[in-house]
Design a binder for these strands. Structure first.
Lengths: 195, 195
DNA sequence: GTATTTCGCATAACGCGTTCGGTGAATTGA
DNA sequence: TCAATTCACCGAACGCGTTATGCGAAATAC
C-alpha cells in the first residue's frame, strides 16, 4: 500500500467525504438513524444528495463505515492488550470488549445493524475472528481448551452466541446490562470448552 | 371469546382480508419479500392500496401475521407431542421444531424478521416460552436439570442462542443445515444445564 | 321507514431512499 | 499549450411505503 501523493482534487474529495461522514454521525447521535434523511445529511455537510451517493452506496453504508473504523480500533488497541492470563479468561475479556463496543455504538445503531441485508457481520468480523481463533489455538496447545473442537468451530459458536446476546439487548432496547449478560452467556459456553 | 354471529359485511371483510393475505404470501414465496410491492399485492388481491392498509398496519405486518398463525400451530401441534423422554432430550427436540419452523418459513422471510423494528421475537415467543419454561421446571423437579438456574434464566439463555443460530443461518443465506447447527449449539448449552 | 353512524374501500398525494443524465473544472497526454 | 478525459458534484425524477381524505353502502338507532 504505497501512499501515492494526492492531487489537489483527491484531497478535496477526501475532505468532502469526511464532511459527509461527520455530519451523518453527528445527526445520527442526536436524532437517531431512522429520523434523519439523506437530504438532511447532505444539507448539513453543504453538498447535494448526488454528492452523498457519490461517496456512499446507501444510507446503510454510513453504518458500515462506522464499523470499518471501529474494527480498525479493535484490531490495533484491544488485541495487543489481552495480556497473558489463561486463555479462557482472555476469551471472556475479548467479549467484554465486544460488549463495550456495542454499548458505545448505542442501541439505536445496533438495532439498525441487525438487518441481514446489512452483511457486516460476515465481513466486519474478519480480523476479530482470526484474533480469537489464534487465541483458541493457543489455548489448545497449552491444554487450557479442549482439543476436540476446531478453533474455527469454537469461534463460530462464540460469535453466534455473542450476536444472539446483542440482538436480544437491542430487542429490549438496551434496558439491561449488556456486559453482564454477555459474560454470563459466553462464560457458560466457554465452560464447555474447558478440558 | 363468544363467536358472535357475523354480519354480511363482516364476512365480506374477513374474506377480503384473507384474499390480501393469501396473495401476499403467494407472491412472497415466488419473488421474495423485498421484490414485491404493496400495489402488486393489492392488484393480485383485486383491491386498492388503501384496502391493504385498512387491514394491515404495514408491509411488515404481513410477516407478523404469518408468525401469529405459525405460533398457533406450534402451541397446538408441537407441544402435546413432546412425549416423555428425559427433559434434556425434550429440550433438544423442542428446538428441532424451532429449526424446522424457520426452515419452512424460508430464509428470505427469516432475513426480514431479523430487524428489531419488527418486534415479533419478544411477542411471538410468549407461548413457546412458557411451554419451554414448564419443561425446564419439570426437569428440575426430576433432577434432570440443575436447580441453580431459574427456569426463566434458562429459557432466556436458550432463546438467545437459538436466535443467534437462526440469524447466522440467515446471514449465510441458508447455505448450511440449520437443524444440525441448532442441535450442536443448543446441545452444548443444554449440557451445562445437566446436573 | 327514516336519520345517523359506521366502516370497507378507493384515490391522490407525500416523504424519502435511490437513480440518472448532465456540467464544468481538474487532470492527463501529446 | 491545447484537446481529450476523468470525476466531483448537482438536481430533477422515479419507485415504493405510507398517509390523508372522501364516498357510498351497510348497519344501527329511533
Amino acid at each position: 500500500m504505497a501512499d501515492k501523493p494526492l492531487t489537489r482534487r483527491q484531497e478535496q474529495a477526501l475532505e468532502t467525504r469526511n464532511r459527509i461522514y461527520n455530519a451523518a454521525v453527528e445527526l445520527m447521535e442526536r436524532k437517531g438513524f431512522d429520523n434523519i434523511t439523506i437530504a438532511e445529511i447532505s444539507r448539513a455537510a453543504g453538498v447535494s444528495v448526488g454528492a452523498f451517493y457519490h461517496y456512499f452506496e446507501s444510507k446503510n453504508d454510513i453504518l458500515a463505515e462506522i464499523f470499518r473504523r471501529a474494527d480498525e480500533y479493535f484490531a490495533t488497541e484491544v488485541a495487543p492488550n489481552l495480556g497473558e492470563k489463561p486463555v479462557p479468561e482472555q476469551i471472556l475479556e475479548y467479549f467484554d470488549h465486544y460488549a463495550r463496543f456495542n454499548i458505545a455504538s448505542g442501541v439505536e445503531m445496533i438495532r439498525q445493524l441487525f438487518n441481514p441485508k446489512v452483511k457486516f457481520f460476515t465481513r466486519q468480523d474478519r480480523r476479530m475472528l482470526s484474533l480469537l481463533q489464534d487465541l483458541i489455538r493457543k489455548g489448545q496447545e497449552r491444554g487450557e481448551i479442549r482439543g476436540d473442537v476446531s478453533p474455527e468451530e469454537a469461534v463460530r459458536l462464540l460469535f453466534i452466541m455473542a450476536r444472539g446476546v446483542v440482538f436480544d439487548w437491542g430487542l429490549h432496547e438496551g434496558s439491561y446490562d449488556l456486559e453482564a449478560m454477555m459474560r454470563a452467556c459466553i462464560g457458560r459456553l466457554v465452560s464447555t470448552l474447558r478440558p
